[in-house]
Amino acid sequence: MFDPAVLAQILWTGLATSSYMVLFTIAFSLVLKVMKLWNFAQAGMMAIAFYAMYAAVNRFAWPTAAAVVFGLAVTLAATLAFEIWGLRTLRARRSSSLLFFIFTLVCSEFAAYVLTLVFGTEPVTLFPEILSPVRVIGQIAVSDWDLLGVGVTLALGIALALYLRFSRDGQFVLAVSDNAELAELYGIDAKRVYLVAFSIATVFVCAGMYLYGSRTAVIPTAPLQLMLFAVIATLLGGMGSVLGGALAAVGLSLLQSYSVLFIPSQWQGLILYVFLFVTILFFPGGVRRGFKAA
């Protein structure tokens, strides 16, 4: 059971599997950092992204690149509509966090019901073939999908870091996330920054759903469960830290992968909820800050 080759294989597979989880977590934690919003509508965004790409590939027979662009365009339109006609109104009314929560959750549910009506509840994958070619490196089996997942996640993560660090718009995003009212006093348009944050989140969500949907079957309500993983990773990583969230997502994925060695697979899901409970009660500011405070 503790053969180094097996442990290394679990490590690699866990890392590759964490790729889409990292993308979802970055999207979730970026919106939370910039807008102070627990965006449960992300599950709806994820479902829309997947089914738009699925329709493009399987119903319109478009090439993959066109399907991805189509998925991105449809999700972006839905997300910006959600921000402009939904969240702005609630913000203008200074609605309570409960109303924001209800609105975001209900939007996700609405998207799931519409997609169920259109596509049914049959689990579907993005492509008919979900197995990708595998090569053995050392003693580890590495699939094309693994390389794509890790590569896309690294590329998007680095691009986001560079954008936030070196671009003018990126600096505006950071300023608004620090203090929106003060940023507005300095002439930064917070509403525009919110749209930028949502647009970036949409790119990460689409990339994540492409990776997830090309390997696993999806039903319209599945993204809700996936998004909860992002919520837990965001909490663990610390709410102000997108990088912390991403690292927590990797850690949680590895923990779930290695837990196969100790507990039956059907109980793996419970680990996440135990982590969520413990994190909120003992490290509400994230694990790193919790230890610092201690």
């Binding site: 966090s97 909860l228 909490l235 109980w267 419970l270 909820y273 969520l276 409970f277 909120i280 009660l281």
Partner: peptide, 28 residues
């Protein structure tokens, strides 16, 4: 008991974790 320690969004997310965690137990 968690509501004595956390409130608002945190309590909400704790409640989701509690609900889904317990359901996971029931399912297994």
């Amino acid at each position: 008991l968690p509501s004595l320690r956390v409130s608002g969004d945190y309590l909400l997310i704790t409640s989701i974790g509690f609900q889904l965690g317990l359901l996971q137990v029931i399912k297994n």
